[in-house]
């Protein structure tokens, strides 16, 4: 059976940006590799959020329960990370995630990573920094969005969000 530690290449996603190879080897040893078929649940809305996930292959759909059934919020492909805020906030998943096609994911338990952070593990601290950075960027974009809404601009005409995201991509993640 394929092990998480077989994955020697660091996935090219901002969450793992700046990790060195030996950091990755230590981290991946703490992860569980999930090989799922099409339309299988990764996690369900309301379940305890005790881990986060990286999509290595395939694609997944984020769905939320509505009065009329489930509605799809987004489809994410290889490189996407799911549930990373749970590392900071815990709680329960606010949406369900299902595979769209046969997919490979890595599951990182929050308590294992917290333990690694507390023991000063360089890779785990880097991930924490990356999550904090992503959240800060999202917060800034949200602030811009709110500022636009406050000016009375119609929803959908917000100019801040795309540009903020571009600034983040071009001036922070990919400088």
């Amino acid at each position: 059976m394929a092990q998480a530690s077989d994955i020697t290449e660091i996935p090219p996603t901002p969450l793992f940006g700046g990790l060195q190879q030996d950091d990755w080897s230590e981290l991946v040893a703490r992860a569980v590799r999930m090989e799922l078929g099409a339309n299988e649940p990764v996690f369900l809305q309301g379940q305890e959020a005790d881990a986060f996930f990286a999509v290595l292959r395939g694609s997944v759909q984020v769905r939320t329960a509505t009065p009329g059934g489930e509605s799809a919020l987004a489809q994410l492909s290889a490189g996407a990370v799911l549930g990373e805020t749970s590392l900071l906030l815990g709680g329960t998943h606010s949406a369900s995630v299902y595979t769209v096609e046969p997919s490979t994911l890595l599951r990182f338990r929050n308590d294992g990573l917290k333990e690694a952070i507390e023991s000063g593990n360089r890779g785990a601290i880097r991930i924490l920094y990356n999550i904090a950075h992503t959240l800060a960027v999202r917060l800034r974009a949200a602030d811009a969005h709110i500022a636009e809404l406050a000016k009375g601009a119609p929803v959908g005409s917000v100019v801040g969000s795309d540009l903020e995201r571009l600034r983040n991509i071009f001036f922070t993640q990919w400088v």
């Binding site: 090219p12 540009l163 571009l166 071009f170 001036f171 990919w174």
Partner: peptide, 27 residues
């Protein structure tokens, strides 16, 4: 740095440079 082959790295470098120039001018 990013574990990319040279071709992908070349495109990423180029897209980043053009993207930064565009964003700095307000798109």
């Amino acid at each position: 740095d990013r574990k990319l082959d040279l071709r992908t790295a070349a495109f990423v470098l180029a897209i980043g440079r053009v993207g930064r120039a565009a964003v700095l001018q307000g798109v």
